[in-house]
Design a binder for these strands. Structure first.
Length: 756
DNA sequence: CTAGGGTTAG
């Protein structure tokens, strides 16, 4: 009908063009970009509005490059063309490009200013937005004020929003709604409801904001009550309810809403599909997806994500191939799917095929390589990246840290301009996990100096460093900080504290922490049991274990490692053997090499060397270095040269480059007085090229850990320290303290040195 | 044809 009408009036100049322009806009808005292109290309005469409409249509459908091409090609640009292009960049998250155009404009109107302010606030660049806002030519128009208020709201600054709201000269309904949204986005439901009651005028947006607020805090009942009070709910009211129920996995209620809706748009369908996807009901999701007459990029992305979620990558890929204009989100979803299943080559293929990529996509790819330990490739991408964000940097740091390359991690970290808590935590936990405890603590201190507050992860890592260094004073200080900043009730921190005190020999403090924390988990119990073990309190370990059972907790493999080592350290041989039996028979826990090592140690201490050896030979899993090491230790204790030699040789097969093993072997020979053999071991080391690692120790003085390395005479105060050592040796002789000289085969002339 | 408040994918 309308076409006929339009054709009838074709005589009037430009009315067909006018009609076609409208059609392009309408098609662009409803996602039918192909039809819009068809009309545009068939047009014989076009005016500036035609070009503007087409630019807008492209931009609304994610084809921002096509939009820009048209913008460049068009014969005559007006102010609206520039604004439309900026708006396109705004909706495609390309703030940088938008700003470039804005700068180049010769004339700007209120549209231009508002667009640009919105661009900056979307990007979190509130200060830039505010500078523009303050330069604003027309202060009486509420539109820009509203944009700035919304910008503050979305970035969590509702007080700033409120200040602006109170200051603005003319308010309209949108201003009131923007302020209402500010409260709701910051989960201030009390303030929001007061504000809502004070509003003299409300529209459906105001109501929708409130029901969304209830949904965000999980109060579905209140949301429903308010929803029923809305005078005339629109699609968005319905979708808010639908997606709210879907988000909380109340999928049947969500479906009921979906079926009852008097009107549905693409978003409604997408929300329902997303609900099913979240609930792993992919079959239901695909039925709806196929029924949809009008799919947009979100529909496709949601569905692809759904298949990725349940591991059906072929199905996901099929959909991606069918998708008409693949967007970054869909492609990134596919890439993460491949990465989750370690199919890096497939992931890379998609990545290479993409015509535009966002930072998140690059980051996903880099994280993928990092997870696979392929840091060279990760780093190559990192270097290629044009614009990086803080996540990019943190991903690379964590990648290097996990691969043990702390030098590289540190170098990247030091190049960062703006570090956040995640950057610091990646670095500190990297040091700690790679045994570089001092470096970990040093950076913990540096972080404090830069005024950054530690969080639970920082505390867990640095407490673990203290535990391994037995740095009690520093550990205690960190504990105070934990209390002060308020992480006492964090499980990770609590468990780290237990381990720290236990490893520092303060088992009473460990107990106290254990008793003080509100909620314990299996790791807390295991930590305290291992703590008892470490300090030789075998009976307490067993008693705690029994308490754990009465509490109804199920012990795991780690529990028994702690228990068995507790028994071996305390010489509780029968109890240990009984527990081992209990573990395998009652709890059906497959013993690990660690468990066998404990049992070997137990039998060995009791002098039952043959039995221990028998166990090692018969155990169903392969003995590891720990098992042979336990046997070797027992042999030395009971001076069993024959078995000891055998164990030592086995041990050397596992760890041919570990100096301490050679030391053990040569000590056995030395104790037996076979000096020829001792010499042979020394030759063997030379042959294998084993470097004697400098011995090191550390001492805590006035809250400062000092590391001493042997055979290093460069640093100051060496002479002083040696004098002191000599004096101490003399005193020790006086009180008849004799070090075990049989063990002192290695350089007695070592110098101890203060590194820091 | 372009700007401010509300929904969906990441």
């Amino acid at each position: 009908m309308r076409i006929i009408q339009a054709l009838k009036s074709i005589g009037e100049s430009g009315s067909l063009v006018f009609y076609q322009n409208q059609k392009i806009t309408q098609l662009g808005k409803s996602g039918k970009i192909n039809e819009a292109i068809k009309i545009f290309e068939s047009m014989t005469s076009r005016n500036t509005v035609t070009w503007n409409s087409m630019i807008s249509a492209y931009a609304k459908n994610g084809r921002i490059n096509d939009a820009r091409n048209l913008f460049e090609q068009m014969p005559l640009r007006n102010l609206v063309s520039w604004n439309t292009m900026i708006s396109g960049y705004l909706h495609n998250d390309k703030v940088h490009e938008a700003a470039e155009l804005f700068e180049r404009m010769s004339r700007r109107d209120l549209f231009s200013w508002t667009l640009m302010i919105t661009c900056y606030t979307r990007n979190g660049e509130l200060e830039k937005a505010r500078i523009l806002f303050d330069q604003l030519p027309d202060k009486r128009s509420p539109v820009c004020w509203n944009a700035m208020i919304a910008g503050y709201a979305k970035n969590g600054r509702f007080e700033d929003a409120r200040r602006l709201f109170d200051k603005m000269p003319v308010r309209n309904l949108v201003s009131w709604n923007s302020m209402l949204a500010a409260y709701i986005q910051n989960e201030e439901m009390g303030l929001a409801l007061d504000f809502f009651d004070k509003m003299s005028e409300r529209d459906v947006v105001s109501w929708n904001l409130v029901i969304d607020g209830f949904m965000q805090i999980g109060d579905l009942d209140s949301a429903m009550q308010f929803f029923q009070r809305i005078p005339s709910p629109n699609v968005i009211s319905w979708v808010t309810m639908l997606s709210g129920f879907a988000r909380y996995s109340r999928i049947d209620e969500a479906r009921r809403i979906f079926d009852q809706m008097p009107m549905r748009n693409v978003v409604s369908w997408n929300a329902m599909i997303s609900g099913y996807v979240l609930n792993y009901q992919i079959d239901e999701a695909i039925i709806l997806f196929e029924q949809m007459t009008e799919k947009n990029a979100v529909s496709w992305t949601t569905m692809i994500n759904g298949y990725v979620r349940i591991g059906k990558l072929e199905k996901a890929r099929e959909l991606l191939n069918l998708m008409p204009y693949k967007n970054v989100a869909a492609q990134t979803a596919m890439i993460s799917g491949y990465i989750q299943t370690m199919q890096m080559e497939e992931a890379r293929q998609i990545f290479d095929e993409m015509d535009t990529r966002d930072i998140a996509c690059w980051n996903t790819m880099i994280a993928g390589y990092a997870q696979c330990g392929r840091m060279d490739e990760a780093n190559k991408l990192f270097k290629q990246m044009f614009r990086k964000n803080i996540i990019t940097w943190n991903t690379v740091i964590a990648g290097y840290a996990q691969g043990g390359e702390m030098n590289k991690a540190l170098r990247i970290f030091e190049k960062m301009e703006e570090k956040n808590i995640v950057s610091w935590n990646s670095l500190i936990s990297g040091f700690t996990q790679n045994g570089l405890y001092m470096d970990g603590l040093r950076h913990f201190v540096l972080m404090g100096r830069e005024g950054k507050k530690p969080d639970q992860s920082t505390f867990a890592s640095s407490l673990s460093a203290c535990a391994n260094l037995a740095a009690l004073q520093i550990g205690k200080q960190i504990h105070h900080l934990v209390v002060k900043i308020g992480y006492v009730n964090d499980l990770f921190v609590g468990n780290a504290l237990i381990t720290m005190y236990a490893k520092c020999g303060r088992i009473l403090s460990a107990e106290q922490v254990f008793n003080d924390i509100d909620n314990t988990d299996i790791i807390s119990w295991n930590s305290l049991i291992s703590g008892y073990a470490f300090n030789g309190y075998g009976k307490d370990a067993i008693q705690l274990f029994q308490e754990m059972l009465t509490e109804g907790l199920n012990p795991d493999q780690v529990t028994f490692v702690g228990l068995l080592s507790a028994c071996s350290h305390a010489g509780l041989i029968d109890e240990g053997l009984k527990l081992f039996k209990y573990m395998t028979e009652k709890y059906c826990i497959e013993p690990l090499a660690e468990h066998y090592a404990c049992i070997v140690d137990l039998l060995g201490r009791a002098g039952r060397l043959e039995e221990a050896y028998q166990l090692v030979m018969e155990m169903p899993i392969k003995a590891n270095a720990g098992t042979w090491g336990a046997l070797l230790g027992a042999c030395r204790l009971h001076k069993n040269l024959k078995l000891g030699k055998l164990a030592a040789e086995k041990l050397l097969e596992f760890e041919p480059y570990k100096t301490s093993n050679y030391v053990l072997l040569s000590n056995i020979h030395a104790e037996a007085g076979s000096w020829n053999e001792v010499e042979k071991v020394r030759m063997l080391m030379k042959e294998k090229g084993v470097e004697k690692q400098p011995g090191s120790s550390w001492i805590e003085i006035k809250n400062q850990v000092s590391v001493f390395v042997s055979d290093d005479s460069v640093l100051p105060r060496t002479v002083e320290i040696c004098e002191m050592l000599k004096a101490l040796m003399a005193q020790m002789r006086n009180v008849e303290y004799m070090p075990e000289l049989a063990l002192a085969y290695w350089n007695l002339d070592d110098l101890w040195h203060c590194v820091k």
